[in-house]
Simulated scan of single mutants.
Amino acid sequence: MNHQDQTPPTSCARERLHTRSVEYNGYRRQDGLWDIEAELRDYRHYDTQTPTGLLPAQASVHHMAITLTLDDDLTVQDVSARMMSTPFGSCLEVETSLKPMVGARIGSGWRRAITERIGGIQSCTHLRELLANLATAALQTIPTWHAQQTKKQGQSPGGRPHYLGQCHAWRLDGPLVQKIYPQFHQPSQQENP
């Protein structure tokens, strides 16, 4: 069901003041690895006085990007960041701060690994935010591609899909799991007297 064309209900006129756009893209590389890219841009719709001067409307407050290179096991092989616009010159001092993430694996504990390896003043809060959510894009890219390839070859994907039990639609006692993955369906306690 698609609700994206709906306008949020409001009873009063509004003026847009701030826009944050974030985009994630997943790429399969010829060398067998994967690049997951994230880009963030913040800008205001009015001129803003900042500690370093006047920032004109539509000019980026933040504009940064990350490329995370992963293997099939979702282990970080390389990472790079680009900070095209930052509010302060000192922000650029941490542009290479993500390198300690090499060797970390996306999965349980991913956010904890980010905090432990590049938390606090070791990096940039916006880069950490992008990195944390790169995990979802990686999971949408890599396991999904592999599952589609397996289906194309007429094989049945093995094991329990990672997304089962992770949201309301894919709850283990729900009708979707019962229909599509009956082998993993777990009736709720209410269904079992």
Rank of each mutant, 00 (worst) to 15 (best):
Q122Y: 11
L54F: 06
M64H: 00
R28N: 04
I121E: 11
G120C: 05
Q58R: 05
A113K: 09
D78Q: 10
D78I: 03
Y27N: 07
V79A: 08
A59V: 00
H126F: 04
R112C: 06
R82Q: 11
C167K: 00
Y43M: 00
Q153G: 09
V61K: 01
G53H: 04
S60E: 02
K152M: 15
C91R: 00
Q140D: 15
I142L: 07
S156Q: 15
A137R: 11
P161R: 12
T48P: 02
I66E: 02
P157Y: 10
L68D: 04
T67Y: 07
S60Y: 02
H146P: 03
A57C: 04
R28T: 02
D47A: 07
G53L: 08
L92D: 09
I114L: 13
V94Q: 10
Q122G: 05
H146D: 13
V76H: 07
L40T: 00
P87K: 01
I36L: 12
Q77N: 11
I66D: 02
H146M: 13
H45I: 05
H162W: 15
I118G: 01
N133F: 15
M101F: 08
H126I: 01
W145T: 11
D31K: 01
W34K: 02
W145H: 10
G32L: 07
C124N: 00
P157A: 09
I106Q: 13
K151I: 15
R41N: 09
Q153N: 14
S97N: 08
R29Q: 12
G119T: 02
K152T: 13
P51C: 11
D72T: 03
V94G: 03
Y163Q: 07
T136V: 11
I118P: 02
G89S: 11
V94R: 10
I114Q: 08
S108F: 14
D31I: 03
L131S: 03
Q149G: 07
